[in-house]
Structure formats: C-alpha cells, structure tokens
Amino acid sequence: MLSIKGLKAEIEGKEILSGIDLEVKAGEIHAIMGPNGSGKSTLASVLAGREEYEVTGGSVTYKGKDLLEMAAEDRAREGVFLAFQYPVEIPGVSNINFLKTALNEIRTSKGLEPITAKDFLARVRERSALVELDTKLKNRSVNEGFSGGEKKRNEIFQMAMLEPSLSVLDETDSGLDIDALRIVANGVNQLKNETNATIVVTHYQRLLDYIIPDFVHVLYQGRIVRSGPKELAMELEEKGYDWIKEENGETVDV
C-alpha cells in the first residue's frame, strides 16, 4: 500500500528526514517510535502533504501512485488520514458540519452522491459510540474548548467517519489517561481490517499494550535506525532511548 524509499525532507534549510525507507502493506500496523525531535511528526506531515516541508530526495508510492505529486486534499480523498498530534481549532464551524463537508468532498471526488442526512446521522451515532465521544462535542465548534483528551478522541472519531485506507496516528496517546487510552485503542482496533493499514507514531510503549503492532521502527535523527517485531518496543521501554543514542554515536550523560 505504501512504499517509502530514501525519503529526505527539510524545513528552513535544515534537514530533518535523512533517508527513510518503509514498506507498509494492507492489514498491517506499524509503530514508529523515537525520542522527541527525531522527526516523527515531520514524517507524518510529509506523508499528509504539508508544504512547509520540502522533500529533497526519495520517493513515496501509495496505492501505485506517486504520493508526493498529490495535493494534500487529494491524498485525503485517496484515503490518507492523519490524526494530528495537535488538532486544530476552527471557531464557529460545528464538528458535524465540518465532517459532513469532508465526507462529501471525498465522496464527490469519487463520483458518489453526497451522503443523505439520515445515513450521515446514523453513521455519526454509530462511530461516535466507538470512541465514546460525548454527544455535546459533535455540535460544538471543531476542537474549540476541547480538552486534550477530547481532541484526540475527536481525531479517531473523524477517522472512523472517513474510513481511510492509511491512517497515521501522531502521538494520539499523549495526554490521554489510561481509560481514554483504552477507548481510543479499542476504536483503532475495531476499525482495523484486511484492506487498511495504520502507522502509530508514539514516544511511549504504553499505547502498544493496546494496539499490537506487526512491526516496530525506531526513528532517530531522521533515520530508521532499527526495525523489529513488537518485542522491540518492550526492549526500548526497558532500556530507554539512551541505548539507541549511544549506539548511534552520541555521548550520553549518566
């Protein structure tokens, strides 16, 4: 589904991604871990099509197409979804109106009719239950005045509504208490099937107790320095990131 080869990207002349290789197949869950500032959000943003980041090398193929050639909205319409690390507030635009607009834009791009009000409401009811989203939040302005946890839950609710093929969850676990974490993870697990794939970006191993990855990758200084099965996450949790840092030639104060 997704094939990243030698991907390099920079911002303001500073190289952040220094050659990333990653293969993601349908039905798989990949975890990307790494210390703060290693480039995880940058990778997520580049995949989603944020133009602030300049791609300086490599390629990304998604469902056989050159992803990097596509505008952000076209990537979304083709099924790429990013759950933002910091979801954005849009005052005065109701969550529900926002989602309906998004859903219908995606449908229109596929030559489908806009969803009927009845079907839409039924879907809202079903999918918001999945992440136990407070009904009040559906009619409030997008993310405005939401708590950190509510914002994250809202991201997964949107994901459930839009049914993407490739979801990138950027630190969806941060700021969640253990109950919320379980709810969010449960939502992600229920949405998983043989035709979609998920990339879970996280700093902590904690989330991976609930969302079991098929592969774990460690990102450090813009490179994937290690890949392995889910046990790699455990190892990281035990040894901490200093181990990776040392391995990669950085001196670490003890």
């Binding site: 944020r50 990537r75 979804f81 849009i90 005052p91 839009l162």
Partner: peptide
Amino acid sequence: IGEDQIFYCNQRGIDTEKAISLIVNGYAKE
C-alpha cells in the same frame, strides 16, 4: 487565518477555497 487551519481542512479532503469559506463563515456565524 492560519495555515494550520487550512492544512487541517485539506487533510480531511477539503480543498483550500472551500476551507477558507468554511473558516470565514464560521468566524462570521454569529
């Protein structure tokens, strides 16, 4: 109007023009 807001809309499949219209109408809703 933040690039953040527009990108957020883009990422949900909404193009920039529609995003601006959505954001501005939200702002003027009252």
